[in-house]
Design a protein around this nucleic acid. Sequence first.
RNA 1: GCCGUUGUAGCUCAGUCGGUAGAGCGUAUCCUUGGUAAGGAUAAGGUCACCGGUUCAAUCCCGGUCAACGGCUCCA
Length: 644
Amino acid sequence: MIQVTLKDGSIRSVEPGTSLASLAASIARGLGKAALAAKVDGEIRDLTYALQADAEVEILTAEGEEGLKVLRHSASHLLAQAVQNLFPGTRLGIGPAIANGFYYDFDSEHVFTPEDLSRLEAEMAHLAKANFPYERREVERGEALAFFGGRGENYKVELIEDLPAGVAISMYTQGNFTDLCAGPHVPATGKIKAFKLLNLAGAYWRGNEKNKMLQRIYGTAFDKQADLDDYLFKLEEAKRRDHRKLGQELDLFSLHDEGPGFPFFHPKGMILRNILEDFWRLEHQRRGYQEIKTPIILNRGLWEQSGHWDHYKENMYFTRIDDEDYAVKPMNCPGGMIVYKSKLRSYRDLPLRLGELGLVHRHELSGALHGLLRVRNFTQDDAHIYMLPSQIKDEIIGVIDLVDYFYRVFGFEYHVELSTRPEDSMGSDEAWEMATGALEEALRAKGMEYKVNPGDGAFYGPKIDFHLRDCLDRTWQCGTIQLDFQMPEKFDLTYVGEDGQKHRPVMIHRVVYGSIERFIALLLEQYAGAFPTWLAPVQVRVLPISERHEEYSDSVVARLRELDIRSEADDRREKMNYKIREAQKDKIPFTLVVGDREAESASVAVRRYGQDNAGAKMGVEEFISLIQEEIRSKKSIVPQLHGD
RNA sequence: GCCGUUGUAGCUCAGUCGGUAGAGCGUAUCCUUGGUAAGGAUAAGGUCACCGGUUCAAUCCCGGUCAACGGCUCCA
């Protein structure tokens, strides 16, 4: 007998050779039915796996993330089977489970259309009903190559050839379909009950743009239809809070054919921008930053000196002035260098923190543009910190704290990534190691968790990136801290040390919002367009009940405006219900209804955004202190994200 | 940039199997003077993305361009 330790700590004795399926069934009949796979000593296995020695076992069901992942991976095989049945000759790429579902990449003569998706779903349902078991077979490399080679599956052959020697090569078969796959899988296709194919996309084989583009089909699968319906509903909800839609509805900004990727900001969008910038200036001033502004177009020589000409040219725009080459700045740093060098600096001046809200232009690929999240010109809330080597750690920590403070104010959750040296970069290995080490050290000192992105750094230095999430769960880099030993060298930056000699400063490039545009997009999605009072373009709308209340309504607006509370009156000849509805649709934090009763007593009837009840009547001055406190405290209510 | 889809009024969308277009919302004007999510009437508003081709005739069919959307690649 062997001893099996279950997740709850209990121990069971079973015969050697007992399968995980029968173990699950012996624990509870329900578990036997729900089991999809199991974790044995940390490794996820098929239920057919036979236990041979003492082990820790956790039965996985679709209730848990890992079980759901196995289910989705199996669903991708089901899709591949359906595709090959309906479109014979289609060659297979890869088909993994991903965050909220799965995909499979295909190479087919046939170009898949959205209509094909429902046909494929029907075929998948048919194959699921047949309840084919997923059968695992481990084979020799030669056999695997012969099998897939014989079927013309050149992508699978390539995968097998790249597998390191000594690795077990396994194939899974369900009915008439066999795929190269490490597994594990659910016991049989019948386990896949609730699934949906979502969209079609092109994807380069192995993610390399030099390779052929395959056709990718995305889908998702859940344990129960109700869960699937719930997920699809959430997707619809997410679309409702899409910043592109809200930006138009709330009249914040627009995008036009005349300037693809170059956003137009409307009056209300400008209010928001300006608030974000005012807040930024205030907080930076408090932390010892000074502000500068450098030109948007600068001479070619500067960009050659900075390395951008060699390493960033594809992303830059150029122009000619008086027969000389100029470039539109894609980054603010070279201009900042010139400011640093405009006078002699002493070690006493360091750390020197120079901030710049700089408008940069980058030529992004046309297919990459996305609302305000990916544009071709944007304002970076940049700053460059010039310092002594001994100040590096404290300065990085200072920036980490600053970013954290900002994101907290807006109620953002974020995660951190550390990006290391890319292939196309400049500088010595030692400098890169030193810089990367310094960033890591600061992260460790803050006790922050982070993910490493090898090769994702800037061409002049490694970086710490802060990522925020959009309404569709995609993450976007916003804040970043980049340690740079190259630019000071390239530009021969110096400071005069205690010893009276010239020394080389170290510098940090950093942004907090990242880009004002991107940050606004994420704020819109974060609040679903219902901005907290301090950010709302219109904070108060006053609704006079009839024409004879206009005078009073105007006096209330005038009083509020006197105190810089952004207010307006809606004195259209419309019914109260109509005006209330509009004020709610415009997501204005406070709607004040004024009629005879209010005019007589210098009061207002306050209705808050999103609250159904007719609000309380209160004195004008009382309302003013309420809203002022709310603005001062930057109070925000973050609506539930993603409904979960 | 690549793959796929889409492009009709300010917005959301119908429609025309080839005979130059329609609704709702919004806007304007008039009526209604109203108490917490849509009162009524009338009117204005479109080179059917753009450029070519086929045709007696193109918004519709074909080709190209541009843009948007979903991805891939890339990135704040």
